[in-house]
Design a protein around this nucleic acid. Sequence first.
RNA 1: GGUCCCAUCGUCUAGUGGUCAGGACGUCGGCCUCUCACGCCGGUAACACGGGUUCGAAUCCCGUUGGGAUCACCA
Length: 471
Amino acid sequence: MKPIITRFPPSPTGYLHLGGARTALFNWLYARHMKGTFVLRFEDTDVQRSTQASVDAIFDALQWLGIDWDEGPYYQSQRFDLYREYIRKLVDTGNAYYCTCSPEKLDEMRKTAMASGGKPRYDGTCREKGLKPASDSVVRFKAPLMGATVIDDVVKGPIVFQNSELDDFIIQRSDTTPTYNLAVVVDDITMNINTIIRGDDHVNNTPKQILLYRAFGAELPVFAHVPMVLGNDRSRLSKRHGAMSVTAYREMGYLPEALLNYLVRLGWSHKDEEFFTRDDLIEKFSLENIGKSAGVFNPEKLLALNADHIMASSPEKLAPQVLPFLIRKGCPAACDNHLFKVIETLKIRSKTLEEMADGALFYYACEVRYDEAAADKFLLPAALESLTLLARQIQAMTSFTEKSLEDAFKSVMETTGLKLGKIAQPVRVALTGRTASPGIFEIIEVLGKEKTLDRLNRAIGFIRSRAGETS
RNA sequence: GGUCCCAUCGUCUAGUGGUCAGGACGUCGGCCUCUCACGCCGGUAACACGGGUUCGAAUCCCGUUGGGAUCACCA
């Protein structure tokens, strides 16, 4: 069995969007699963629209996703000589010809065809003229007039196209650069690509490409056309549907594994499993289980999956990923043992790293900023006794464990006759400034004796001064 | 419009002739509980329609409807 060689061929005309990422992922996974080779190639023959910034953005996104390549990156713009050589072969073998019909004439041709209800296709004016290259001539592929071309698609099954539907498409522009269909085929042939996994928006190009493979006498690759990713209005995913670039998800605090997991499940399944790590996917991915119908992108499910992946990650793994979010918020955190403990308390209640960072801020604050409503509700004179008692208990403690803290609270409960619920909320506001946070015992343990006492005492002072004001 | 593709809960999907049509997200109710979460229990909700084939169709065939893609000297 021949080794599988797949490729991802983005055109660098913008950031890497979710659809592209999924295509890259499928190709990468298949190559990894089959222990084959994954090739990266930039299709930048459109010099006008291709930019280095886009190339960099795509590198950045792929790297973040952890999608690495074994070969390339190749740039089509550096292979023009090769394409010319292949085009010449086609002309020499009578499979292509020069055409001098002007764009204006073609336009008119299309219009009259449309007007009379016909198809907008080239009428073959120059097909049999045997023209020599001229300054403004293009090269057209001489497509068969009869017969049919069939795609043996692994996901959709056989797809038949009547050759009479195809026209003599241009393979070389008047500026001697190759067009898309020619360049892909030459590249895929010369790079030995034998498995092409791409969006099914390419299905209609495929018969043209198959014809080119035949004209070159090359072996056909396996085609797998995967269904599109749709927006919530069921139209093709685009900017209208909100955040589209892969890196936007990084900024919002998504884990690359979660995004990968979500993307792969959009169109592929393995039994009824929902959660996959990167290694799971490499092990389980297969072309057979790719679905046929288009899928709607659902941000809520992505979010839920992100929460699952956060929960499944270790604090050590999470720390370097949250750190940038903390720093961006002006938090003096470092990737240390303390941060690991902080994360441990937040993991289970954070759906994104952004949320986790927000939740972590209070641990690092020099002075807790009280949420107004929280302070109004809980930092009241009624809490003074338990706060004071608790401070005294903690003062006397030498080390914190869940058990010893529980005992401290119990003692306060006994003295005051209050339930834990009544005591915990004021303490929570004193320590975090908010009414929602990780468990009280966890917080105290992570905060440490000194900070806990500081905050308790400050809250006591806060209540006293307030009481003074109002009385 | 031509060509091509697709069709199971709102969404992602399992299902490959015989299932009470399963799971996940969402949603609703409840439990747990120091808050928020997590977790747990339960509810809601789908085979687009019409014909066949078959003892028996979500599963196979045809048609209808609906949705999508594509029709460049873009990729």
